[in-house]
Design a protein around this nucleic acid. Structure first.
Lengths: 166, 166
DNA sequence: TTATAAAATGTATTTAAAATACATTTATAC
DNA sequence: GTATAAATGTATTTTAAATACATTTTATAA
């Protein structure tokens, strides 16, 4: 007897993308910069130049940092950026989550139908979810204050040096 | 007095790439397939067709699975693939590590010099490393046997059905 | 009240890596 | 020696991230 194979339930797993892009990198560095430059406004240009990274890319990162409530942004002359809360109150896990919006731990789907056709016994999905949670958990246990480099190793611009520069 | 800013120590973090690509996805599914088809040789073509995925891509995945010692591959007529060990002996963490070779948790470098210029107080590096370890830890606690779907939901080809097919 | 400095926003281009495709070689069973 | 299967290498396509460019909006200092 000829048996057609039953392909009905196919486990298609778009395995979790846990990639932290330069988005998160830039975000954390911007926050670090701001934390090390308290009591004044910094600007996007200033941060981009300090780290020697693309200002254009940074613009978007900083915009998002503002949207997510990590920093205050002020337009116009005399405007700039500053932390919205002290470093101790900024949880790294929140930053990571806020910057990486595609934290789709798992998607099980039929690539043709683009919909989940979860196998009843699919243990991988749960495993990936647990791994992802363990990953974020670590970030949830640290604040910006915890990762600040010892300030003495880096000389940051100050209001005075920025003025001298002009 | 004019102060030149000291840009000397710049923290450049290529933030860890924790992305599991379709490589790992395909690998885990191949292993699952083989585990559900014990007592016989399967072929690359068979696995690719079952999951309806690119045979060419799968070829490389399977080659690597063989290199890493998860499966036995046999060339030539009557050849094919089979698990090298029972599912209980195949640790998911090992598979993930084996397939994703670029698990560079952290790289701190000056993009110009491409070398690490680690800040003494850089707490992010450690944090990322810890998160990565926590992530892998979960995979280390599971074996292939743990994630196998209940076999009754999927009908796999058998030696008999494969012959009927010709 | 105007000029300027700053962020906000949108679009287009470049780059890098993953995914896929294609072609050839090597091994083995019959 | 022929058919079947994996091994291997290269080229192309696709996708998403990163970057660049252009314009608009907002605030404020002069």
């Amino acid at each position: 007897m000829y048996l057609k194979y039953i392909y009905t339930v196919i486990l298609f797993l778009k395995v979790s993308n846990m990639q932290l892009t330069s988005y998160t990198d830039y975000a954390l560095r911007t926050l670090t910069y701001l934390a090390m430059s308290p009591d004044r406004q910094s600007t996007i240009t200033e941060v981009a130049e300090f780290y020697n990274i693309s200002r254009n890319h940074l613009v978007k990162v900083i915009h998002q940092l503002g949207n997510k409530g990590f920093i205050n942004t002020m337009r116009g002359k005399g405007g700039g950026l500053a932390l919205q809360r002290p470093p101790e109150m900024i949880r790294i896990g929140d930053v990571v989550r806020g910057m990486e919006n595609h934290f789709n731990w798992v998607e099980c789907f039929d690539p043709a139908q683009q919909q989940c056709r979860l196998l009843p016994g699919c243990g991988l999905k749960q495993l990936l979810a647990r791994a992802g949670n363990a990953y974020l958990q670590v970030f949830d246990e640290a604040t910006l204050a915890d990762i600040l480099p010892s300030i003495t190793t880096v000389a940051l611009p100050t209001k005075q040096t920025l003025n001298n520069r002009k």
